[in-house]
Write a protein that binds this DNA or RNA. Structure first.
Lengths: 202, 202, 202, 202
DNA sequence: CCCTAATCGAGACGGTACGTCACGTCTTGTT
DNA sequence: AACAAGACGTGACGTACCGTCTCGATTAGGG
């Protein structure tokens, strides 16, 4: 989430204090869990982290950007994401979607994740960044796995895989966001089963 | 001189100025489109509407609530919502999902809808209200239509209709929220077709 | 010290809280005595006065302006200032200059007075205001008293009275500012005596 | 490896960069003329001088101290200051006071001089330094010149010379500070003439 | 003449205060 | 009584400087 304004006096990253960076990210995660995103404050993050406000403003453009980095540990190579391929598509997808369910309901990150998801609706710039760095690499991994399944005849050849993947993850996100019913492994399993029936060759 | 208690709670709704109410809702909708939800302020709404701030605080608890009422015109009876039933499930669902696509991409309400959707993640109270008054009645209509389809044998009898409905609307919301690919009628059609294959009796 | 900028959303003075106004002026006077002008802070004044910062910024353009009003109680009519005239010029001037000495060494106002005097060197706008509202009316009173003395023959007719008055007050202010030697009634008396010898007709 | 004590106090003056010292003093003088003392900033001085902030903090305790050195070129021996003595007291004093007028209205130093004068009111330490190094030596020179005049009978023997000198310089500084009327050679002359009448033996 | 310890330019850091904005409450006439 | 208007106490905003603190890169002086 770097320089949107060209008038940036870009600071010298080599002199950056790793100590402060970590303290800020940790404080942000803690606080968003305690008070929620709306009441999350740059001043509070700075105070909790024992850091000057300017040290936050120097390296991040907004509290959303801080949270973003706190959730996405930067070091991960997006292209390296790969779905398991045991040959059994249904089993593999259940594995993956169950893991997604676990992530979405993880206590430590849930508040931050919800906050970021929400903020993408208000802040298009953030939305693009999150899509490019996090979402899209994962979706591409789905596409690759489904393409392999097409080759083995588990998925009909004429299916648009981009849509296929949305049939799988869309329902999960919908239930997570609306909080209408609990998000469980059983739910993930059922979604996989019903969807795969629709994708199968006839 | 009885009851000079300061517990001035509920104002007298009969004396309410409809003129002001409309001006506030209109101003809120305009402004959220211009500056986005985060930069939307009660003071700006009041100024644009030519209204005192107190008149807003008297009748709504938050800017989200104002927007909520601006989007959901109140008068609609939630129980009255009904999906079309021509006997052809696929055609009926396409009709409905195409309409949903149109709504979600409508210029006038899009900003407000996204703002409200986002805010439900941060404000659980608002989330409950929106679910109860808007979302759930629509979902129930889906359930009723799908149950009818079960009776006519278009949907397998052992399907959890609650999940079935999420297979239909989940993908739409996912694409709308992530803005990864355009949300079109063709997309809605494909989602219906593929999903119904999965729901069909075997 | 009102509106220097024409873009002023001039607030409604009739709604002004006299309570806050007094608390601010008192707090400013106290604080300038405790920490000095340089370390005097709008935030500290607001905190001490139990007032929001905006309430200060709404009515005064700077901390100097606050101090100014705190020292010059507004209600005094500048044109009404008059020096005593008993007929004895020397005695009258001694009375006045002794009073000036007392004022300059008064504990309560000294810090504020020094601060304001200093600030006039840095802030020309403030300097003009202070000269016009406080200094000049007093100097005019001197000129009137000296003119009367000219008519009674106690001061030579060809003397520039503006200069005459500066011969009287200049030394006092010099000693006050430089703090080289104590500022006493005796000093005031001697200044009057020596100066009047120079002003006398020959 | 002895004495790794962090008590790094006095830096080594022999290694000091004269180049930087001059650049700092020049930058300070320029800037105080452009933005005034209040808005004068150590950071701005450093930037203008092309110097690190620490180089200023190493050698001066405050921005006032920098200006002080910029105005008072250090090398002058205070005890060596002597007023002219042609035997004609009036002529000599006019020469000196005219020179003072020129100094006070000099374009290059006026802003700095006013700033320093003002700051002595807020910063007692600075006031003492300025009095001891600059003001007092000059006043002593006046006292010596006036004592000589007493011996030649141009000034009455019973006059307190300390007060006499203040009668001369006080009015000048008063007019300079208050900016009420222009500070001219003619004014200096008149002050000398009127004051000397008062000091003359009777 | 080189070595080494200092000063030097640069600027990140934890802080404090700035002046502004919006909050939600309260008060003052007006309708 | 609700209304338009807006002053109020509160608190966060994002910025500007403070004075301290590393960092290499000169840069002079004593060996």
């Amino acid at each position: 989430m770097p320089d949107k304004s060209p008038a940036n006096k870009t600071p010298d990253a080599t002199r950056r204090s790793e100590r402060s960076r970590r303290a800020i990210l940790d404080a942000a995660l803690e606080l968003v869990g305690e008070v929620g995103f709306t009441k999350l404050t740059i001043e509070a993050i700075a105070a909790r982290a024992g850091v000057g406000k300017q040290t936050i403003y120097r390296w991040w453009p907004s509290k959303a950007a801080v949270l973003f980095e706190a959730c996405v540990p930067e070091g991960v190579d997006p292209a390296a994401i790969e779905l398991p391929d045991t040959g059994d598509l249904e089993a593999d997808l259940k594995t993956v979607l169950r893991a997604t369910v676990d992530e979405l309901t993880s206590e430590r990150l849930e508040a931050a994740t919800r906050a970021l998801t929400a903020e993408t609706q208000n802040d298009a710039e953030l939305g693009r960044a999150l899509t490019a760095k996090v979402l899209e690499p994962q979706l591409q991994a789905y596409v690759r796995r489904l393409r392999a399944a097409q080759r083995t005849g588990q998925v009909a050849a004429d299916i648009d895989l981009r849509i296929a993947l949305e049939l799988l993850v869309g329902p999960l996100f919908h239930r997570w966001q609306t909080r209408t019913l609990p998000l469980t492994h059983a739910y993930a399993d059922t979604v996989v089963e019903l969807t795969l029936r629709g994708l199968a060759p006839r």
